[in-house]
Simulated scan of single mutants.
Amino acid sequence: MTGVSPTQRQITSDDVAYLVRVSFGSHTRVRDAGPLVGGGYATVWWALLDDDRRVVLKLAPPVGTPLLRYERGLCAAEARYFRLVAEHAPQVPVPLVWDHGTDPAYGEWLVTALLPGRSLHELAVAGVAVDDGPARYDLGVALAALHRVTGDRFGYDGGRAGGSTWRIAFTAMLDALLADATEWNVRLPVTPERLHALVGRHADVLDEVRRPALLHFDCWDGNVLAAPDSDGRLRLCGLVDGERFLYGDPLLDLVSPVLLRRIEDDPGHPLLRGYQATAAEPLVLDVSARRRLGLYRLHLYLLMTVEMPSRSMTPQSHPERHARLAALLDSELAALADD
């Protein structure tokens, strides 16, 4: 497979067979294998083993590949996340971790079980006519379960951006993105000074977050797997790509599931109904919550803009993505400035 991003590498079925033997022992063979597409960071393949197990092999970028600051150590982070969820929120369907290892020639990799179902993004692209409301309701229930798990600090783990309070951690996350933008020569529609002023203006709502809840952060439709149940209803059967997890405000997890839209503008959304039905604490989308959601969308759109050159995307090669993100950033900046 030829990677579409500099962080992805070209491997073959022989490479997959070798890493499977390293993970499971020399007696294990691969009956079939192929690439999984859709992501832009790691190289991902599925494999059918000779004992009928279906696994996913995720190969981290080669050592020395330029990465965004928060992306360092993501393969190990994903292993930690899936194990955390399996231990503390076992009702949430995440892949079983079979192995996490390193190799002098291949670098770092992760092997997990292959979950059933197709992503909501794949179903939409394929034009499958199905009501995805039940699956999105289930996602809300799953997020409510994840958010009951509490960390010992805010932000990312592994020495990345974080802090003792959510305000400190969130500011550090934004500062890391600003530093990445400088290094990658990404022009942003906001200066660091204006961004800091906006965060300072709304710091009081960030300080209302007192508990570092476990967050997935990246629950866009491509990472949400679903399959029909016995009644033909599409239900959640997996959450994948948990490497970007962090600890913070549960509201942060309500941004990526409705990517490029505003969840507070759709109070009857099935995700909200599932979350509200099972959350440990009531979900109130009041003025404070709306301000925080605006800040979190601002962070996500900044991230999606800053990551473009690291994925070989430029305003010229992807003009629609660049223009749409710029417009969304302007909208959130204006709303926060007026609030």
Rank of each mutant, 00 (worst) to 15 (best):
G39Q: 03
V205D: 00
R187D: 15
D338F: 00
D131F: 03
D286L: 04
V44W: 03
V63Y: 00
D249L: 07
Q316A: 15
V209T: 13
G294K: 01
G3D: 10
D103H: 15
P189I: 11
R80H: 08
V16C: 09
V199A: 07
S256H: 13
S317G: 00
A17C: 07
L328T: 11
R324L: 12
R72V: 15
P6I: 14
S288I: 00
A326K: 02
R290N: 00
F170I: 07
T7P: 02
A42I: 00
H88S: 08
D52F: 08
E307H: 00
P192N: 13
E307D: 09
A144P: 13
E122W: 02
G162M: 12
L234W: 08
R69A: 15
R29C: 10
D218W: 08
T314R: 02
D131E: 10
K58D: 03
G274N: 05
R153I: 06
L336E: 04
D231C: 05
V92S: 01
I168P: 00
L114N: 01
D330V: 00
R118A: 06
P228N: 06
L252P: 02
V240K: 09
Y296V: 05
G242Y: 09
V85T: 13
A176F: 11
F245A: 11
A77V: 09
V97K: 00
D138L: 08
V125H: 04
G39H: 04
H269R: 11
G268C: 13
S312F: 01
L236I: 10
G151Y: 13
R324F: 01
F245I: 01
R153W: 14
V63D: 15
